[in-house]
């Protein structure tokens, strides 16, 4: 059933966020530390485990695939929620700091990801193992 996939996703997210909060408390930080990242790693491992044993039905995969495909529309809704006016109101100091940080971040990407260029082929095979991949990769 579709809901099994959605429920699996929901359970992973709740557990991940919970651990993120605990990690935050443990470190004495007022923030969730990597909750979403923990949830993602959990989901990858569980999906991998279930698929190898043929326990993840196609409808359940569709349930996961649907939310994965809704990601881009949700990101666009997110962009429509940003405090753009506030960012520009922050004045030249805020704008310069933000722009400089982004530019320097970009400059460092090739320095830190050296040696990663050959791996491109493996992605093609491995991504979107189940469900329809058309609606996820409709960008190209």
């Amino acid at each position: 059933m579709v809901i099994f996939g959605v429920a699996l996703l929901a359970i992973c997210m709740l557990i991940g966020i919970f651990f993120g909060e605990i990690l935050g408390l443990f470190l004495g930080v007022e923030a969730n530390v990597g909750g979403v990242g923990i949830a993602m790693i959990m989901l990858v491992l569980i999906v991998d485990y279930l698929k190898k044993r043929g326990k993840l039905s196609l409808p359940a995969q569709d349930g996961l695939g649907f939310w994965s495909a809704m990601y881009i529309p949700i990101v666009i809704a997110m962009s429509a929620n940003q405090n753009v006016a506030g960012a520009l109101d922050g004045g030249p100091l805020a704008i310069m700091a933000g722009v400089a940080a982004a530019l320097i971040g970009w400059l460092f990407v090739p320095l830190l990801s050296k040696g990663g260029l050959q791996t491109e082929e493996t992605v093609e095979e491995n991504t979107f193992i189940g469900g329809e991949n058309k609606n996820v990769r409709n960008i190209k």
């Binding site: 966020i17 949830a39 993602m40 989901l43 990858v44 994965s68 990601y71 990101v75 991504t127």
Partner: peptide
């Protein structure tokens, strides 16, 4: 966050 976690469905 829900949709971001869901993208992990396609990750290796």
């Amino acid at each position: 966050d829900f949709a971001i976690v869901a993208t992990a469905f396609g990750a290796s």
